[in-house]
Nucleic acid binder design. Structure first.
Lengths: 106, 106
DNA sequence: TTGACATGATACCATTCAGTATCATAATAA
DNA sequence: TTATTATGATACTGAATGGTATCATGTCAA
């Protein structure tokens, strides 16, 4: 039903795209700079960036002949909103999850 | 790198599987019961359940000739944990979800 | 025991997907 | 201007994916 949610989930389903998202969390990067960090062609990276853009997870700003790819954190909202559906079950069924997150934070 | 994280993300990337997860949040269901709720064959539902099981999101318990599919909320931990990397970027809405999780942890 | 029921498993099909190769275009530098 | 650089776009390929059809197996009920 909600295509935005679906596009965001789909964008995050690929490990390369999740890596890109993490990289863009640290700094804005051009396609060329991102390509340097992966073992694949620029065209492949560009495709991933298109999927991420469709998923609302990044924005692209043209600067001269370069394209600055920037993380758009709000794009993760639909995904986390989906998880919030489970709030009502949190106490009964997600106790272990909370503990797992807490444990990893220490 | 982390195959469990990848399997969980992949399992949640399909809208039918996310629907199944929501249904199982309300009640445990057999394959037949789930099939009644979708417009696809039992074999297709079974495949989705296998993917969800691989992703650690459900458990299956044999009871007689039936298979009880049960939500395994801890399976979402790897996914939410991945998101926690972006703590610094979360806006208010996303923080609210996170705080709701934290609160219920106490 | 026998038949019906719930599921498992496999083969097959169409589509999507991740990736490459290749060529075109726009901007920068010499 | 001309060469180089950064990117866009398209066609193609192999693998994965979502789905169906079909048959086998185990369990329950009469």
């Amino acid at each position: 039903m909600n295509t935005q949610t679906q596009f965001a989930f789909r964008a995050l389903a690929d490990p390369t795209r999740r890596d890109i998202v993490r990289m863009l969390a640290s700094e804005d990067l051009t396609i060329g700079q991102l390509t340097d960090r992966f073992d694949m062609t620029r065209a492949a990276v560009k495709k991933h960036l298109t999927v991420l853009s469709d998923g609302g997870l990044i924005t692209v700003e043209a600067r001269g002949r370069e394209r600055i790819n920037r993380l758009k954190p709000q794009g993760m909202a639909p995904v986390l909103d989906w998880f919030s559906y489970f709030d009502q079950f949190w106490d009964e069924r997600l106790n272990n999850l909370k503990e797992a997150i807490e444990r990893k934070k220490k």
